[in-house]
Amino acid sequence: MFRLQSSKVLAVEMTGDAVKAKNGSMVAYDGEMAFRKLSGGGEGIRGMVTRRLTGEQMTMMEVKGQGTCWFADRAAEINLVSLQGDRLYVEASNLLAADASLRTGTGFTGMRGASQGNGLFTTTVEGHGQAAIMSDGPAVVLRVSARYPLTVDPGAYVAHQGDLRQSFQSGVTFRTALGEGGGEAFQIRFEGEGLVYVQPSERNTIAGDV
């Protein structure tokens, strides 16, 4: 059972079950806990090789026991995500914890990842359960539906879930080359049905100031 102790500390109550969490993110626990490093995020040899090949590396640990365990990472804001059979796409570095019953894997992101400077691959989490993702400042959750497609700055994108198609929009014109671009030259457009998490801050992207 995931709950937010504060916006920056995640508390997980466990009764003999297990969670996967980012390696080293435990800040406190009470009760009995066992920590075990999961090589390759607990995805087996194939997952390990995939992660190695795609550069989407993730060091996770498995925490199992009775009691409450608290997790935090560099005072990043934590957002809870509940999954009902759908799939969450998140950068490995932004994933704090997930129920052990959720399957994690590696997915292809295409130009979005490239424009963020995060590489072409991302981490997927799917199944039924809860996950916790981190953002710089509390994430705003935006619903995308057929009527309301959403456009996001790659630097502010944190995660998305549901059945979404993403397309990469480039507003680079001759004006950008003249230094009179709109400042938002690279955008990702989401269409379909689902949720997108954006953070109130922009990472440095290769698009930079364009």
């Binding site: 705003v140 935006l142 309301y148 497609p149 959403l150 456009t151 996001v152 700055d153 630097g155 502010a156 507003g171 004006r175 230094g179 009179e180 671009g181 709109g182 400042g183 938002e184 997108v196 954006v198 953070q199 109130p200 922009e202 100031d209």
Partner: peptide
């Protein structure tokens, strides 16, 4: 660069 996302159709011009 301060826009983080938008709904609708919005253009950004220098």
């Amino acid at each position: 660069g301060k826009m983080i996302s938008y709904y609708g159709s919005i253009e950004f011009d220098g």
